[in-house]
Structure formats: C-alpha cells, structure tokens
C-alpha cells in the first residue's frame, strides 16, 4: 500500500513536471514551476496566475513586473486577510528572491493579477507570461488555464 502511494505520488510529480515546463530561458538561474490560472467569464473580470518561482543561482534576483499579450495591466498583487477576517488586495511591489529560495504565488497570497484582459481565458488553453527582473532579465512561462473552480495546478 505504502509502495503504491509512493509510486502514484512520483507519477503525479512527473506528470506535473511535464505540464509545468520549467522556464530555463533568460536568467538561467530562475526556474518557474507549477504555473496555473483559472478560466475567466468573459473579459471584464481580472484573472489571476499562480506559480512557484525558484532562484537556483548564487545571486539574489528581484522580480519587478510581468508582461503578457493576454492582459494590458498584469501586476503582482498580494491578498492579505486581517485579524477580523477581512481580505484586501494591493500591488506587492518588487519581490526579492534570495539564492536557493523560492517564492510561491498561490491563492490567498501573492498572485499575478491580470487586469484588462484582451481575450477571455479559456479552459484547456495556455498563455505566455513573462517575468521581468531588475537586471533586465526575462523569463517566459506558458501558463495552463484550468477550470474556474480549480484549486491548484493539479486540478
């Protein structure tokens, strides 16, 4: 039973690895994993993109912004929930990632906020999202669009 669990976990991880297409172009020390987003209803609502950004190098890297043909105003935002349970969202500014560290863009925290969509986000499709770093480096990743009710990259 335990063996089966391990094997299936391994299989799931391998599948994920295949889906997420680690982006090794640009600053070769930055690896983007498990990118995903949710389908949109039309184009009026902002979308959100999630991923893990890993700095595998020896130098710190600083993420300063996003660009994508999908949205006119892509920005990194952060959701915060205070002690009273009230959630709010605001631009996160620059994000420094120390050598060997990673930053998770995940529901309820940091996320790529895709404002002013140029086309609807359709389940099953992907879109290119480029991460901009302060040294002028860029990393482009293909982000899969999952269902509206998706909870994570594995959905």
């Amino acid at each position: 039973m335990k063996k089966y669990f391990l094997t299936s976990t391994l299989a799931a991880l391998l599948t994920l690895g295949g889906l997420s297409v680690p982006a090794l172009a640009g600053p070769e020390d930055v690896v983007v994993e498990n990118a995903w987003s949710r389908a949109s209803i039309g184009m009026n609502r902002p979308g959100a993109a999630y991923m893990t950004i890993r700095n595998t190098g020896d130098e710190p890297v600083t993420l300063i912004g996003l660009t994508t043909p999908l949205a006119m105003m892509p920005e990194i935002h952060e959701t915060k929930t205070n002690a009273e349970g009230v959630s709010s969202m605001s631009p996160a500014g620059e994000i420094a990632i120390a050598p060997g560290e990673s930053v998770a863009l995940e529901p309820g925290g940091l996320h790529g906020m895709l404002m002013r969509l140029q086309e609807p986000m359709t389940e099953g499709e992907t879109f290119p999202l480029t991460l901009l770093f302060d040294d002028g480096g860029e990393v482009t990743v293909e982000v899969p669009i999952l269902g509206i009710a998706a909870r994570g990259p594995e959905d």
């Binding site: 609502r45 902002p46 959630s87 969202m89 529901p107 906020m113 009710a149 909870r151």
Partner: peptide, 17 residues
C-alpha cells in the same frame, strides 16, 4: 463578489470541496 480574482473563487472552490 464575482469580479474578485483570488479570494472568492478560492473560497467557492474550497466550499465545493
């Protein structure tokens, strides 16, 4: 609210789960 990109779809998905 339905124009909420992060918290609301996440809560609705959590509840569905």
């Amino acid at each position: 609210f339905t124009y909420c990109p992060d918290v609301c779809p996440t809560t609705l998905s959590d509840i569905s789960g």
